[in-house]
Amino acid sequence: MARITLFLLSFVMWLTLVWPFSLAGGEHTIDFQSIIAGVIASVATAAIFYDFTENHHKIYHLNRYLWFLVFIPVFIYECIKANFYVAYLVLHPDMPIHPGIVKVKTKLKSNSGRTILANCITLTPGTLTVDITDDGHLYIHWIDVKSKDVDHATETIVNRFENYLTKIFD
């Protein structure tokens, strides 16, 4: 089952990158050479890398995808806010920055969830993930340190994403 899912995933990815369907001159033409090459490559990928996630059953839960759709606008909003904030810091003549590395804790268990959380933190206001430990601590370079305390920093940086990511990945 996992192999079939991986085959479909890689084949859809191949189709989006190659897009063998064309409408040249008002006629539908399909480039069968590209499709056959894609099938061969996808079968090879599925045969070698079938063990691509630690919990296969998770990718068949529909509510995870619905929560992901909810998460996208939240992420875009935070991302754009982050950019205006950093742009303000960059263009301010005095550059009012107080950088430092703080430690925060995450409740997320799965590797993919932690990866996405670290990526989201890097893309949001003035924070940059430096390292992550196995017991769920993240070291964050914060451009304007508001709190050195682990719990308070967690509340400020992590919590706005963690609730969504727990529903998506855990």
Binding site: G100, V102, V145
Partner: peptide, 20 residues
């Protein structure tokens, strides 16, 4: 960032804290 910290580059002199 991790490689920079591991190779010993210090934070800026006006930095607040370095938990790492």
């Amino acid at each position: 960032a991790r490689a920079a910290h591991k190779s010993g580059i210090p934070l800026w002199k006006r930095s607040e804290v370095d938990k790492y």
